[in-house]
Simulated assay, not measured.
Amino acid sequence: MSAQAISAQEIPNDNRLTVSYRLLLGLYTIIPLCLSLQLFDGWFWHGFLQQNLPSSPKQFLLFQVIFGTPHIVASSILLASNTEYLKLYKLKIVLMTAAIIAVFGIGSLFIPYKVLYVTVAAWTVYHVLKQQLGVGRSLYRLPDWAFYLLLWLSVTAGLFVYIGIFLKNSLEPQQVEWIKLIAGSLCGGLVACALLCERYQTSTSGRYFLWANVLLVLSSFYLFVQQYYFFAILVPRLVHDATAYIFYVVHDYNKHRRQPRNFIYRSAALIHLPIFVVLPLASFALTFVLQSYGDEAVNALTRYLFDIEINKAVTLGVLGYLALMHYYTEAFTWKQGSPYRRFIGFSR
């Protein structure tokens, strides 16, 4: 979802669902929860969590099945299962697919790994924070220059935190210290920018959303410095993924509640499966299958047919492609005036 996509939109009161700003704001309670766990771990548990949690949530298969990948799969299902959406965006999808193959397929033969990694990291952080800042944009109503200053300070600080966590084993201690210093300075600039943006706030909800998004970055930086890497990634990941699912479920409920319009919801109607659980259930189930059995299934097939194995064909190839495509398509599919937005309304 892009920053330009989210603005309050009235929809008829005919039992349609709306996206509740209060519910979205409630997701940010993960911030004080993780900070409390970090403090209690230092005060009472002698660093047990710090020593035993993985350095990244991605090291937990269960985490990958719950966070990150499922909402990417859900986004792909939503786009691919509605033929009118697929036809409308077909050319963009084809061109982006060609670009991904060129850059990450052919380009990987001569582009250094770290360059590709930082590129994807920057795109990931930008996608996550642009969605969250965009959701609240209609509430804090900032001028364009202030909004984009807030956005880019957040993204740049978040990128340095991301690099500091995921590339820490390949960095020199001095490089890690420089990353902390740069990220900390950017966080200081972010706070100063937020204080400047206060002058434009006319509503309590706008002020809450503004500072919730600032704290999203600040808390991740603090947890990174304290070496609670799991929590540093969990905070933005949970808020982002849960926010996306709220939009997806509201969209699908409003679109399919009266008459199922694609094969997934027609099949669900036959077994009386509630609309609310169809997309989450399908995306979580497909994620589990792909993460747990996808690579081995492809290897079994390629061994049988060609006597070769393809390393991580599904977990890196297929899911990597879906992630990059997700970052790309979400930038325009939720914009004001898109067919997706016909089924989205907001309430405060």
Rank of each mutant, 00 (worst) to 15 (best):
S55I: 01
T156A: 14
S108W: 04
G189T: 07
A121R: 07
V135W: 12
G105W: 07
R341P: 07
Y21V: 04
D41E: 03
I310L: 15
Q336D: 09
I31V: 11
Y117K: 15
Y89Q: 04
Y328L: 08
H256I: 03
V128M: 13
Q4F: 12
L286T: 15
R341S: 12
L305I: 14
Y228Q: 01
I344L: 10
F224Q: 00
K168H: 09
F224T: 01
T287I: 05
I100P: 08
L151Q: 13
I100W: 11
I246G: 04
G206Y: 08
T83D: 11
T97G: 15
I11D: 06
Y293E: 11
N15C: 02
L33C: 00
Y248P: 04
H46Q: 11
R341V: 04
F343Q: 04
K180M: 00
S55K: 11
T69N: 12
Y248C: 01
I163H: 00
N82S: 10
Y208T: 04
I93Q: 14
L210N: 11
V318T: 10
G164K: 03
L78Q: 14
A183K: 01
I93G: 05
K114E: 09
V125L: 04
L142W: 03
R266Q: 12
S185L: 03
L215A: 12
K114M: 11
H46C: 02
R207N: 08
G158A: 07
F230E: 07
Y321V: 07
P70T: 10
A99W: 11
L290E: 10
Q201Y: 06
Y253S: 02
Y113F: 15
V120E: 11
A80I: 13
V155P: 00
F67E: 07
G188I: 10
L91C: 06
L23A: 14
A146D: 13
A313Q: 10
G320Q: 07
N254G: 00
K87P: 00
Y327R: 09
L35G: 06
P32G: 05
Q4R: 11
P12T: 13
L216R: 02
S108G: 08
D144C: 00
L290P: 08
L49C: 06
N82A: 03
L196V: 10
L109V: 13
A282N: 03
T315W: 08
Q64Y: 04
I308L: 14
Y21T: 04
Y148S: 08
R237V: 07
Q4L: 10
Y245M: 13
F166H: 08
Y327C: 11
F263Y: 04
F231I: 05
E172G: 00
F332Y: 15
Y21F: 12
S138N: 12
R266L: 05
A323L: 15
H256C: 05
D295L: 02
Q50V: 02
K90L: 12
R137I: 02
Y85W: 10
L316G: 03
N299F: 06
F346I: 05
L37A: 14
I179E: 01
L238N: 04
R237W: 09
I271V: 15
W123K: 02
F343D: 09
L316F: 04
E296W: 08
Y89V: 08
S205T: 14
F48A: 12
Y113D: 13
S55P: 03
L223P: 00
